[in-house]
Simulated scan of single mutants.
Amino acid sequence: MFIHPLSDVQSNRIGDNTRVWQFSVILPDAVIGSGCNICAHTLIENDVIIGNDVTVKSGVFIWDGITIEDKVFIGPSVTFTNDKQPRSKEYPQEFFRTHIKKGASLGANCTILPGITLGENCMIGAGAVVTKSVPDYAVVVGNPAKIIKWLNKND
Rank of each mutant, 00 (worst) to 15 (best):
Q22F: 06
I74Y: 03
C36S: 01
A30N: 03
V9S: 03
I112Y: 15
C122H: 01
A145F: 09
F96H: 11
I44G: 02
P144Q: 00
N154G: 04
I112N: 12
N46Y: 06
A145N: 08
D47S: 10
V141Y: 06
F73V: 06
Q93G: 11
K146I: 07
V134C: 09
G35I: 09
V129T: 13
P28W: 07
V48C: 09
I116T: 02
R97S: 15
N143W: 08
K102G: 13
D8S: 06
L118Q: 01
V141T: 14
V78R: 09
K153T: 11
Q10M: 01
E90S: 12
A138M: 09
I62V: 13
S7V: 04
C36A: 08
N121C: 02
V60P: 13
D16G: 06
I49W: 08
G125S: 11
I50L: 05
L27N: 02
C36W: 01
S105G: 12
I68G: 02
S34F: 02
L118S: 10
R87A: 13
G65E: 14
I14H: 00
S34V: 03
S11L: 05
K84H: 08
E45C: 14
T111C: 15
D64G: 12
T98C: 04
K101I: 10
I26Q: 00
G142W: 01
G127Y: 09
P5G: 04
F96P: 05
I74P: 12
V139I: 15
S105N: 12
N82D: 14
S7K: 10
A30W: 05
L6P: 08
D64N: 15
L113C: 03
G35P: 10
D29I: 07
V54F: 00
T55V: 13
T79I: 15
S7R: 10
N143V: 15
C122L: 04
